[in-house]
Nucleic acid binder design. Structure first.
Lengths: 223, 223
DNA sequence: CTGGATCCATGATGATACTG
DNA sequence: CAGTATCATCATGGATCCAG
């Protein structure tokens, strides 16, 4: 099994970091593990276009690098992959690249590009994290008819995105589809309808107003 | 000419960013342009191990992506490459990866690893940028007998590293070699001698004391 | 000399099929 | 569900050469 450890041989910590996470697909694997543990096929699904061979190799490299831990329970079919603390610490670097992409590579979905609710919401989370912090915790549930449900919450310190498992009651519940949500996000903020087709909001009126207000910050984060 | 534009086909701004800067060597090229314009052979020298073919291809991709600008003056031999504003905005992402490497891939130089004063100082700059900001501007000149002279300065807002061209008078002048400076940096702060062999400091005593004090922050940045 | 281009070898990735 | 096996293609490295 080729361990693909091509080095740069520079005494430079950027080069060292890129030897660990600079291979093709690697940072996208970490991206999808930042929202919690995932199984092999979960990752195959989120990482549209990766081959099982490559995913398998990347996971093993990340395990060797101490970035990913593997949870294999005897007698259980599934294998769960999750980030170690060192892996979690890649978040700032990934968010840095994410923000650059948001500013310099923002274009509507191109033909053939896979669209996942999770990645749409990751962009929203990144922008919210750059706005003035709310004065209290907030919990939003976003339910995509075709792509699962997510919790986007401000925990008093940072905005967090997770696949929906928490039971904490939401301030706002959003019911939509990936298509409708994509249309909403790619429209310039001042051209977005107040009640977009295909997006239903439920909750206290003032909580819904706050949601609407915060969403006007996308994608520039100003305010 | 293969333009090496292999895509991920994800509607995700991280994937979009990595399509621009995720190829092998690309971020190292940007790293070396962050300190100012460079010529092809300057880059060849700093990027030990890259082949001219790959460097040439990377520079053209970065130019196509709007990250690098090329300055070809008629009647002049040299070609200068420099970052565009979009390229400069990669700095936070690069520093994020740099900090991760500093925390999780810090080891002494391995046999065969190229050591450049510029990259040693880039690590110092990254750490200084995470310490409590000084109460006034500071200018240090660091002169490496075997690898040029650099200016490391706090401009009242951030720490800046540049190849030495400014004429502003320094608070401290450091005269050393890459080997002596490497030995100094890889030693734990509490094991570093007060006057390391091969490192000469010149300047007002209180400025030298401040230099010494700030250097104890490397590599953890605490304080 | 700088700033590359060319040729060939090798390693990394992709496509597809298949298995415990 | 969680991968492996095989084969094809593409990207990269090494060496060499060349034009201004």
């Amino acid at each position: 099994m080729p361990r693909s450890t091509r080095t740069y041989d520079h005494f430079c910590m950027l080069a060292r970091a890129l030897e660990q996470v600079g291979n093709r697909w690697t940072l996208l694997v970490v991206r999808d593990l930042l929202r919690g543990p995932r199984r092999f096929t979960d990752l195959m699904d989120l990482l549209g276009g990766i081959t099982p061979k490559t995913l398998s190799q990347r996971l093993r490299e990340l395990e060797d690098a101490g970035i990913v831990e593997v949870d294999r329970q005897p007698g259980r079919r599934e294998v769960w992959y999750r980030l170690t603390p060192a892996g979690e610490e890649l978040a700032p670097a990934i968010h840095g690249l994410f923000r650059w992409g948001l500013r310099h590579a923002r274009r509507p979905p191109q033909p053939g590009e896979a669209v996942h609710a999770e990645h749409l919401l990751a962009a929203v989370r990144t922008v919210l994290d750059q706005t003035t912090p709310p004065d209290r915790g907030l919990v939003w549930h976003l339910s995509f008819a075709d792509d699962g449900t997510y919790t986007l919450a401000y925990d008093g310190d940072a905005w967090i995105l997770r696949p929906h498992i928490d039971s904490s009651p939401p301030d706002v519940t959003v019911s939509t589809t990936t298509d409708a949500w994509t249309d909403y996000l790619i429209a310039p903020p001042n051209e977005r309808p107040r009640d977009p087709r295909g997006i239903d909001l439920a909750g206290e009126p003032r909580d819904i107003d706050r949601f609407r207000d915060l969403m006007t910050r996308f994608p520039d984060g100003a305010g």
